[in-house]
C-alpha cells in the first residue's frame, strides 16, 4: 500500500462497522423515521391535505413528499455521521483510528459513505411509505437520485464536522435541533415559497435548504421555487465548504490529536 493508493480494507472495515450499528439498532434506525413520516402523512396529507388547494398542479399530500423525504434525509445524514465519529471520541476508541495507516480521505469516505448510505436507504423507505398514502409521480428519476445522493453526502459531511466539534452529547444535538430542523421547516418542505409575501420570500432565499427542497421537488413534479441549476450549484457550494472545513480539521488535528 503506497501513499497514493487507498487503504480499501480500512474503508471497508469502518463502513461495515457503521452499518452493523444500524442493524443492531434497527428499531431506532429505521422504524422510528418510518413511523414519524407516516404520522406526517396522516396529519398533513390525509387530515389537513383534502382542505388545501393543489400546489403547482399536484395535491397537497403529493406536494409534501419531496419535502418530507428531504427533512428525513437531512436530519438522518447529520445524526448518523455526527454520532459515527463522535461516539469513538466519547468512549476513547478513536485511538485506534488515529494510530492506523488511514488517511483523512479514507476516514471521510468510510464514515460519510456509511452515514449517506443509511440516510439514503431511509429516504427510499420514506418514499415507499409515502406511496402507500398518495399518488406519486417522478418526472426526472435520474435527477431525483442525483439530488438524493448529493444531499445525503453533503449533510453527512456536515454531520461529520459536528461530530468532531461536539465535546458532549448536548452539542451533538444542538445544531440539528436548533439550526437544521428550523431551516428545513422554513425551507419550503411543507409549502411553496411562492406562497410567502415578497419580503419573507427574499429572506427565505438565504436558507440553503430551500435550494435542496426545490431541486428535489422539481425532480418529482417538474416544478421548482428556484431554478434547478441554482439548486444544484448551491448544493455543490455547500459540499465544497464542508470539504474545506474537514480538510482544515485533519490538517490541524482539531479535537482529534493532542
Amino acid at each position: 500500500m503506497n501513499a497514493l493508493s487507498l487503504n480499501i480494507h480500512a474503508i471497508r472495515a469502518i463502513y461495515r462497522f457503521e452499518m452493523a450499528r444500524t442493524r443492531r439498532t434497527l428499531l431506532q434506525s429505521i422504524v422510528s423515521p418510518v413511523l414519524s413520516t407516516s404520522l406526517y402523512f396522516v396529519v398533513f396529507g390525509s387530515a389537513i391535505g383534502p382542505h388545501m388547494n393543489e400546489i403547482a398542479g399536484v395535491s397537497y399530500g403529493a406536494f409534501l413528499v419531496p419535502g418530507l423525504i428531504m427533512l428525513g434525509l437531512l436530519t438522518q445524514s447529520i445524526s448518523n455521521a455526527s454520532f459515527g465519529i463522535y461516539f469513538p471520541r466519547f468512549v476513547g476508541t478513536i485511538y485506534e483510528l488515529l494510530s492506523a495507516p488511514v488517511s483523512p480521505l479514507e476516514t471521510v469516505i468510510a464514515y460519510v459513505g456509511a452515514a449517506a448510505t443509511k440516510s439514503t436507504l431511509l429516504a427510499l423507505i420514506t418514499l415507499g411509505t409515502a406511496a402507500l398514502f398518495v399518488d406519486l409521480r417522478i418526472d426526472h428519476p435520474f435527477w431525483m437520485v442525483a439530488f438524493l445522493l448529493l444531499t445525503a453526502v453533503t449533510f453527512s459531511l456536515t454531520g461529520f464536522i459536528i461530530g468532531i466539534w461536539a465535546d458532549n452529547f448536548e452539542k451533538l444535538q444542538l445544531v440539528p435541533l436548533l439550526i437544521v430542523t428550523p431551516l428545513t421547516f422554513l425551507g419550503g418542505s411543507f409549502y411553496s415559497i411562492d406562497m410567502l409575501p415578497p419580503f419573507w420570500r427574499t429572506v427565505t432565499l438565504f436558507n440553503p435548504v430551500v435550494y435542496l427542497v426545490s431541486g428535489f421537488r422539481w425532480s418529482f413534479y417538474g416544478h421548482s421555487d428556484v431554478p434547478v441549476g441554482i439548486s444544484l450549484g448551491m448544493t455543490f457550494v455547500f459540499m465544497l465548504i464542508c470539504l474545506a472545513v474537514i480538510s482544515w480539521i485533519f490538517r490541524t488535528g482539531y479535537r482529534l490529536k493532542r
Binding site: 480494507h9 472495515a13 461495515r16 483510528l97 492506523a100 495507516p101 488511514v102
Partner: peptide
Amino acid sequence: SFSRGLFGKPP
C-alpha cells in the same frame, strides 16, 4: 477483525 482491516490487512 475490524482492527486488522483498519491496518490495511485482508480478512
